[in-house]
């Protein structure tokens, strides 16, 4: 009895030890793998940032020079030293299109998601698939009709046309995302609130909004990124007045002469707002992007 009693605990400690070292090894390899993947994804970005601080001739050499002297010429070019063309109108256009369309998308997708999850309408699955089906058409297929429509309606080169387009393009994604967040809210909380006498508005404001905030932040950021980076429609439908950041970016590419450093500088500068938005919403995002985090 005593023997078995002394043996038993020692066996459990060894198994525990073995298990924990196994866990440690697997978490170590998972950690290494995620670092590796992270670095692989980051290398092009780091390369872009590094190149943006090189001179044109250093950026154009092959094999690449890592230790070439750093310069701000690329950024000076971006802010118009070579062309006298300021990037601000294009950036303001991009900001207008992205921010306004994101707000519209949120304003439309949250009620829609509510009607598809918390108080689902009849045949809500059909509705969901209808939303999804609008994303099945390749955007380029709609380009020509849109161009002709815009031309006839006098909406070419008008930033508000892009606002409408970006809103409608991002709406299905936002509805799907918001639904997956809202459906995770336990009905019991809502019932409890209703029993306590809270109306729809109060439930929305005091219960749903705080719980769904990470989801809203994640949805908003995704919509913002998609509209900020959109290039196809912006290039075809805008001209001199409504030109957005990505279109402005291409104006540094030339078939005669070197342009890598200024394009990298411009690309870095144009991606900054998205990076800043991402960092600002980081803690919300981590919750939001790991779906189901509202529990």
């Amino acid at each position: 009895m005593t023997a078995s009693a002394t043996v038993a605990p020692s066996r459990t400690t060894t198994t525990r030890k073995r298990k924990s070292s196994g866990v440690r090894a697997s978490s170590l390899s998972a950690g290494l793998a995620s670092w590796l993947i992270g670095i692989i994804f980051f290398i092009p970005v780091a390369w872009m940032v590094l190149t943006s601080f090189h001179s044109e001739s250093d950026a154009g050499t092959n094999p690449p020079k890592f230790g070439a002297p750093l310069t701000l010429d690329g950024y000076r070019e971006f802010f118009g030293s070579g062309t006298g063309q300021s990037p601000w109108p294009a950036l303001i256009n991009s900001a207008t299109a992205s921010v306004v369309s994101t707000l519209l998308v949120l304003g439309l997708s949250i009620p829609a998601a509510y009607a598809l999850s918390i108080k689902p309408v009849r045949k809500w699955t059909d509705v969901m698939f209808f939303f999804l089906s609008t994303k099945l058409l390749p955007p380029v297929a709609g380009l020509l009709p849109l161009y002709l429509f815009a031309q006839n309606a006098g909406l070419l080169d008008n930033i508000w046309l892009l606002v409408v387009l970006y809103t409608s393009m991002n709406l299905p994604i936002a509805v799907w995302m918001m639904r997956s967040f809202l459906v995770e809210i336990p009905p019991a909380i809502l019932e409890a609130a209703a029993i306590d006498g809270a109306g729809l508005i109060n439930i929305m404001r005091k219960i749903i909004a705080p719980i769904a905030l990470p989801g809203i932040a994640a949805t908003a950021l995704i919509c913002f990124i998609f509209s900020w980076n959109e290039m196809l429609f912006a290039r075809v439908l805008t001209g001199v007045l409504a030109e957005t950041g990505p279109v402005f970016l291409t104006s540094f590419v030339t078939s005669q002469g070197l342009f890598l450093a200024k394009v990298c500088a411009a690309a870095t500068a144009v991606s900054l707002p998205v990076l800043i938005a991402g960092f600002a919403a980081q803690d919300k995002l981590v919750q939001g992007l790991s779906l189901g985090a509202v529990k």
């Binding site: 519209l104 909406l155 008008n158 508000w160 046309l161």
Partner: peptide, 24 residues
């Protein structure tokens, strides 16, 4: 349902209208 459909349409319509006068 009608109200739900009308609202987004109205919003889009408003934006389009303000756009037509906004530039172009």
């Amino acid at each position: 349902t009608v109200a739900g459909l009308a609202l987004p349409l109205l919003a889009v319509g408003l934006v389009a209208c303000s756009g037509a006068g906004g530039g172009g």
